[in-house]
Simulated assay, not measured.
Amino acid sequence: MGSETKDRLSAAKGRIGMFAKAAPAAMDGFARLSKAATSAGAFSSAQRELIATAIAVVKGCEDCILYHVDSARKHGAEESELVEALEIALEMGGGPALMYASKALEAYRDL
């Protein structure tokens, strides 16, 4: 199952790349925003990515979940930290967030 998750992440990144070629100015701005939003400050980059994951869970964005879980892992986030962020997402998003929270945990374990 891990390779399926990696394939879905790769496909999402491919779609982002395709859009970046079609709208380079917009994506340049978005890339700068994304870099600023995930750069360490009072929160570490891993913590910022976990916040983004929690928001993605509440919003129900599967590709966002994959992208931010992958980034959180790369920045050193532990599974236990993800679970804590997902608990907050569950509080804020209710039942639908539970379904996406389980997808986020599965993605963490698969990646």
Rank of each mutant, 00 (worst) to 15 (best):
M1N: 13
G2M: 00
S3Y: 11
S3P: 09
E4Y: 10
T5A: 15
K6R: 04
D7A: 15
R8Y: 10
R8W: 10
L9E: 00
A11Y: 11
A11T: 13
A11K: 13
K13S: 12
K13C: 12
R15E: 13
G17F: 02
F19E: 05
F19D: 04
K21M: 13
A23L: 06
A23E: 08
P24T: 05
P24M: 03
A25R: 11
A26H: 11
M27S: 09
D28E: 12
D28W: 06
A31W: 08
S34M: 14
K35D: 05
K35R: 06
K35Y: 03
A36M: 13
A36F: 10
A37S: 09
F43I: 05
F43A: 08
S44H: 01
S45G: 11
S45L: 07
A46H: 04
Q47P: 09
I51N: 06
A52N: 12
A52D: 11
A52I: 09
T53F: 08
A54R: 01
I55T: 07
I55A: 07
I55E: 07
I55H: 00
V57W: 09
V58G: 00
K59Q: 11
G60N: 00
D63E: 08
C64E: 01
I65G: 03
I65V: 09
L66T: 01
L66G: 00
S71P: 00
A72S: 01
A72R: 00
A77E: 02
S80I: 05
E81R: 12
L82I: 14
L82T: 08
E84I: 03
A85D: 10
L86E: 02
L86W: 00
E87A: 15
I88W: 03
L90D: 08
E91R: 14
M92W: 10
G93R: 00
G94C: 06
P96G: 05
P96T: 14
A97T: 02
L98R: 06
L98T: 13
Y100Q: 12
E106K: 15
E106D: 15
A107N: 04
A107C: 10
A107L: 13
Y108H: 02
R109C: 02
R109P: 05
L111W: 06
L111F: 10
